[in-house]
Design a protein around this nucleic acid. Sequence first.
DNA 1: GATGAATGAGTTTTCATTCAT
DNA 2: AATGAATGAAAACTCATTCAT
Lengths: 221, 221, 221, 221
Amino acid sequence: MTSRTAGESDRPRLRADAARNRAQILAAARTTFRELGTAAPLDEIARRAGVNIATLYRRFPDRNALVQQVVLDGFTLLHQAARDALDTAPQDPLAAIEGFLLRLVEERDTLVLPLIGGPVPTTREAVELQGRITPLLEELLAHARAQGAIRPDATPMDLITTGALACRPLPYLPEEQATALATRHVHIFVDGLRPNGARTLPASPTHEELSIHLQTDPSRS
Amino acid sequence: MTSRTAGESDRPRLRADAARNRAQILAAARTTFRELGTAAPLDEIARRAGVNIATLYRRFPDRNALVQQVVLDGFTLLHQAARDALDTAPQDPLAAIEGFLLRLVEERDTLVLPLIGGPVPTTREAVELQGRITPLLEELLAHARAQGAIRPDATPMDLITTGALACRPLPYLPEEQATALATRHVHIFVDGLRPNGARTLPASPTHEELSIHLQTDPSRS
Amino acid sequence: MTSRTAGESDRPRLRADAARNRAQILAAARTTFRELGTAAPLDEIARRAGVNIATLYRRFPDRNALVQQVVLDGFTLLHQAARDALDTAPQDPLAAIEGFLLRLVEERDTLVLPLIGGPVPTTREAVELQGRITPLLEELLAHARAQGAIRPDATPMDLITTGALACRPLPYLPEEQATALATRHVHIFVDGLRPNGARTLPASPTHEELSIHLQTDPSRS
Amino acid sequence: MTSRTAGESDRPRLRADAARNRAQILAAARTTFRELGTAAPLDEIARRAGVNIATLYRRFPDRNALVQQVVLDGFTLLHQAARDALDTAPQDPLAAIEGFLLRLVEERDTLVLPLIGGPVPTTREAVELQGRITPLLEELLAHARAQGAIRPDATPMDLITTGALACRPLPYLPEEQATALATRHVHIFVDGLRPNGARTLPASPTHEELSIHLQTDPSRS
DNA sequence: GATGAATGAGTTTTCATTCAT
DNA sequence: AATGAATGAAAACTCATTCAT
């Protein structure tokens, strides 16, 4: 991945140093949001990025602008991961699903915010991107179902839920160990997706039901 | 569960009204920490508990004292859930494991903090309790292995990781739907624990490796 | 000095435990006021006295009541010291003056407040007592002047100023050393009071000028 | 004295407006500490300095940083006064000593804190400066002794004690009258320093004994 | 008479945000 | 474009005071 972030193409090209600062701010924002939540002090983010707080404000006029860019970057990655998984799905769809989930775990530093539980995306770009992901996952599952490689009642929401959960920070563990644990978790989960001996799953809320609730932000965090 | 909270027995008995306030403060703290993180404003907790902020401070001299009591209460529940699961393990050990995980999901309001990723427990009581949980889970797994009901490489840490992940708040969803999604997730995960067709799991960090890192708190949150 | 404090005779006799508490509160108040000023937390005084804050409030309805009692006790001591000095003045008036000042230094724990720089006395009793002290000191000086034992321009205010200064806490020094330094200081000062080779002193504000200003309290401290 | 304060040279140069604010904060701190003690509300200091409380915090991260700078400024003045006194000592050493003490009284607004009884200096700079003062006073006394102008047993500590006492605020008196009283006091004290008829002084704690105790701060005040 | 408890009103400290350099 | 500086507003924490036991 390059240092340019999603959605940047609309904007006038930044001076080299400004672009570097912007990237550093976003990187600092991601790790800080992961550790302290999206209510984390902006000072702290600026400090970690090595820039003055006023520089952060010049790039992102308010907290939400920063949060939304982080969200958008996350959705971009998520979308890309789903597309890439779809490419390999015809050969081994379950491996493709597992690869998709493991990639989310690996890149979860970039993904803190966009999954269930993150802030509601409010930019047009992010909302559109979000809408394009579920169909891709549905398609991924369709491949697997067609080959009898998966229990028939698994849904895109189950994959998103798993991504959301497995990407959550386990903040008191070093990266390596947290990744190892999350990887094992995904591994077992994917084994549970196989059809042999699968029990019937309890009912899932529909995507529509979920969407209704994804529009209101209960808090700043 | 009674309204008395863990560890209270050491302390001089509180007056009835004070005990009520204390319980309300802890309940408010749990929901607030879930929603806003452990850096949440203490005012907010006091407001939700219906007491003055100074009353909160009288009971809990600083934020950490409150956090630690919430952690302790969580470990108490976790310990009890493990013990109860062990009671039913002889009949159907996998059902006991699933019941254990689903109980954590159901009672996750009380469990926000004590699992991996929560604040490091610093009180003697909490540390002791924490240390007693892994052996119980090991015993639970031993039952399942003895009956050939589970893949042999699953560890207590896998169960704790799953509990930690599945209990994480999905804050933009109403309780009911979040519970439904987490329940399905656990269901699939438990199916993945069965031995038939299980692939070999990647390596797990050992309990010792993990313990080393659970002693330092990178931040207040 | 007994454990009864000045002005107590007006009040109904206290129960033995209450009297003990009252004395402990006053002792704690004196040391606390010396260390932290009269704005010191009343909690702290109650804590040092080993009683509940509400008990302090029962004895002294507000901070000023406590301060005034400490002031009154101080004036009582000051008055007594002046009277005692006067008794020995005929033999050696300069020794009497020195004895007076050194006694103030020794008992300065009880004297923190009543001298120049302390809170303005507002109770009738304290004001009366205060008014009786200057004449006693004037008489003491008259003896000394009559015997040619002192420079003629020294005034009661000079003695009070010296008492006020020498009684000030030097809080980072242990009692013993602070007393030693103050004792030497008084010693040298009294040598400076002798008439031989005395230079003329600069003008003193009159007692009347000073009195005017002693009626307003610039702050709570 | 210029508007720059001691120790500033280490720091990056402040912007002109910031330097002005800093000086105003220190001036306000000095008068406020004199009146209310070092536990005085920092709001009050900010208010008197005409700046926002947050501006005060930007310059001085906590109360102690402010206190220490005031201490340091005081030591700087004290050191300078001792050096200046030494310049005039050869002609009339006793006048030099008296001038030294009277200068402290006159400038006592700047000197509230650094003498015995003030907060223990904790910065390297202040400790060094403090250590350089006693030898200067010893030299001053040596001149006086060499000319037979002073009682032989007077020590630097006696001068420091006198400075400490004479500089103490007499807060219920207007400056002018407090100065007049302190001036008379110093005058008499210096007369007491002369050798003629001097009695032997009681023992003094040594400088070493005192130093031991000057390293622990019994309280914030 | 004494105390545990509660609270309202501070004071301290931090943070988001804007402005001047 | 970036930063040092300032500030108002919020949050953390303390204290004086009163009440109920």
